[in-house]
Design a binder for these strands. Structure first.
Length: 210
DNA sequence: AAACGGATGGGCT
DNA sequence: GCCCATCCGTTTG
């Protein structure tokens, strides 16, 4: 039987719990160019009463998706040239989400590499560096503003459970946590989660690779 | 190995 | 006008 996308109820759990539960699941994007799949290895939670959260000061045109239905995408533009991809959590109107920060490439490696090289044609990219950051994975998976508000139970962009590719999943003991990256407000909150020691995690805390 | 600055443009005070 | 949920190449120790 074909694996079914994560159901709506998955995203109704407390956001911190959803951020942990997403580790080991698979982000799948079907495009005319081909299919790409990445295993989620790093996430961050953004909460309603959290000054670092885009929804903190209430709804605006930009953050509207965060106040929309759970299990939909929130895609936003940042630093004049990048996008970030989030999954909305909690009931409609709450304003919480999980940022997807890093993927382990699973399928469509060559397509992901070509997309990355188009943005940065100067050098080769090590496999573990292909999707080790929120801006990078969005380029590799070709996730753009058009997918803002997209229902992640439907084609072309879905999230499949950890067992979809015969993987046992991620146990609580394998999950590390720490402060979120790149924010000034609420910088002390430990709302970043990753698979401990995984080579595809972003930042200095990942395991040393070559 | 870590620190730093430039690119680049939308969103909000 | 200032602030970014970033990335990359260069410099520094």
């Amino acid at each position: 039987m074909k694996p079914q996308p994560l159901p709506r109820d998955f995203f109704l759990a407390p956001t911190e719990r959803v951020a942990r539960a997403l580790l080991g699941t698979y982000l799948v994007h079907d495009t005319p160019e081909g299919k790409t799949v990445g295993r989620i290895v790093e996430t961050e939670a953004y909460l309603r009463n959290d000054p670092a959260c885009h929804a903190f000061r209430g709804p605006t045109p930009r953050n509207a998706a965060m106040f929309g239905p759970p299990g939909h995408a929130y895609v936003y533009f940042i630093y004049g040239m990048y996008h970030c991809f989030n999954v909305v959590t909690q009931p409609n109107g709450t304003g919480e989400a999980v940022l997807i920060r890093a993927l382990e490439p699973v399928l469509g490696w060559e397509l992901m590499e070509n997309r990355r090289l188009k943005h940065r044609p100067s050098r080769a990219i090590a496999p573990a560096r292909l999707c080790d950051g929120p801006g990078k994975l969005v380029i590799a998976m070709a996730i753009g503003r058009a997918l803002n508000h997209h229902d992640l139970r439907k084609s072309p962009l879905t999230i499949l459970p950890a067992d979809a590719f015969q993987h046992p999943g991620v146990s609580a003991k394998q999950i590390a946590r720490g402060p979120r990256i790149g924010i000034r407000q609420a910088a002390d909150l430990e709302l970043r989660f990753w698979i401990d020691g995984h080579p595809c995690v972003s930042g200095p805390r990942r395991q040393a690779t070559q």
